[in-house]
Amino acid sequence: MQVVSISSLKGGVGKTSVTLGLASAALAAGIPTLVIDLDPHADATTGLGVRASGQADIGQMMKNARRADLAANVLPSGWVANAPHDGAGEPLLDVAIGSAFAGIYDRPDLGRRDLRRLSTVLANSDKNGGSPYQLVLIDCPPSLNGLTRMAWTASNRVLLVAEPGLFSVAGTQRTLRAIELFRSEFAPSLSPAGIVANRVRTGSNEHTYRLAEMAGMFGDLLLSPTIPEQANWQQIQGAAHPIHQWPGESAKNASALFDQLLSRVLKQRPTRSRNRA
């Protein structure tokens, strides 16, 4: 089971959109996947077409981590009913739902015991015959407070999302430094999965310049392909629909990019940037 945190120090860069795009690609590829919505705003939960009906949210499960029953509280994504499958069984895309309750842990002073709460929840799901998931995607809040660090503790890899803009690039550099520090103190096996340049405008001179800057700063950590700005992305998310099932050439092209990106995230070996961030 590979656990990947999708993180950004800066809000508004499309971190949840990338999470949903990767989840859509995993569903289309038939990869059994769990999305953990760790952002108290719970946008990933909404975009995945999930509504709670008595289940414990991820914050409640982390509060009682040792007794948490993940399998009993995840919900199937609303995307699954319309997903194609080969007759061997329904595709698996589950959601550990987000809520504002998780915000009780989004503070900078968490101790080691609290940092392991999400790890414990995931470990409990792996006791009886192994986890049903090959991939776990954790949608983190746009900060380096407690929830993000809980996610990093539970993860193998961290995928960073950035826009090709000055403040976002600077935030990505700071996040890479934070990962290095966190790894040395708390999570020695943690590594960057790479950096996704999101919402790229191909006709923008500023974006062209910043992409070249990112390539120089981050080297092979800057993943290909980049994700262009998607004019109908809000409509797709508002409809709680996977991009792989949305009509139109634009969505088809974006789906192919997320397929490539998912392949890179799953197969790429950790590398270091040319210039240490």
Rank of each mutant, 00 (worst) to 15 (best):
Thr202Gln: 13
Leu122Val: 03
Asn198Pro: 12
Asn156Leu: 01
Asn232Leu: 10
His241Thr: 05
Cys140Gln: 11
Asn205Lys: 13
Ala52Met: 13
Ala123Thr: 13
Val35Gly: 04
Leu222Tyr: 08
Leu48Phe: 08
Met217Lys: 12
Ala26Asn: 01
Ser119Ala: 15
Pro225Phe: 01
Pro91Lys: 01
Met217His: 07
Ala254Tyr: 04
Asp69His: 12
Ala162Trp: 01
Tyr133Ala: 10
Glu213Trp: 05
Leu93Lys: 01
Leu93Ser: 06
Val18Glu: 01
Asp39Gly: 03
Ile138Ala: 14
Ser273Lys: 04
Arg117Pro: 00
Ala154Glu: 15
Arg174Gly: 00
Ala215Ser: 13
Tyr133Met: 10
Leu20His: 04
Ile179Gln: 11
Gly49Asp: 12
Ala44Lys: 08
Thr46Val: 15
Arg201Met: 03
Ser191Ile: 01
Gly203Val: 02
Gly30Thr: 12
Gln60Phe: 07
Leu190Phe: 07
Pro188Ile: 00
Arg201Asn: 14
Leu9Lys: 09
Val35Arg: 05
Ala26Glu: 02
Leu262Glu: 08
Ser99Glu: 08
Gly248Phe: 06
Ser224Glu: 13
Gln55Val: 02
Asp57Met: 08
Leu221Asp: 02
Asn232Pro: 02
Leu166His: 14
Leu147Glu: 07
Val80Lys: 10
Val18His: 06
Gln60Asp: 05
Met217Asp: 06
Ser17Asn: 10
Ala100Gly: 13
Leu137Ala: 09
Thr208Met: 14
Ala23Gln: 13
Arg117Gly: 06
Gly21Glu: 01
Leu160Asn: 03
Ile236Met: 09
Asp86Arg: 08
Gly194Cys: 04
Leu115Cys: 01
Ser143Gln: 02
Arg157Glu: 01
Leu118Trp: 10
Gly59His: 06
Arg201Gly: 04
Ala96Arg: 14
Ser99Phe: 03
Pro32Gln: 02
Met61Thr: 07
Thr271Asn: 06
Trp246Lys: 03
Thr175Ile: 06
Ile31His: 07
Pro188Lys: 03
Lys127Tyr: 10
Pro270Glu: 07
Glu180Phe: 02
Val80Arg: 13
Ala52Asn: 09
Leu137His: 12
Ser53Val: 04
Gly165Ala: 15
Arg276Ile: 09
Thr46Arg: 11
Ser17Val: 03
Ile195Pro: 06
Ile58Thr: 11
Asn64Trp: 08
Gly59Ile: 11
Gln234Met: 12
Phe218Val: 12
Leu22Thr: 10
Gln55Asn: 15
Leu34Ala: 12
Ala81Trp: 08
Gly54Val: 14
Ala25His: 03
Arg107Gly: 00
Leu222Thr: 00
Ser191Thr: 14
Pro270Ile: 00
Arg174Glu: 01
Leu159Asn: 04
Thr271Met: 13
Phe167Ile: 05
Gly59Asn: 08
Val4Met: 04
Glu229His: 14
Val121Trp: 00
Leu38Cys: 15
Ser17Ile: 00
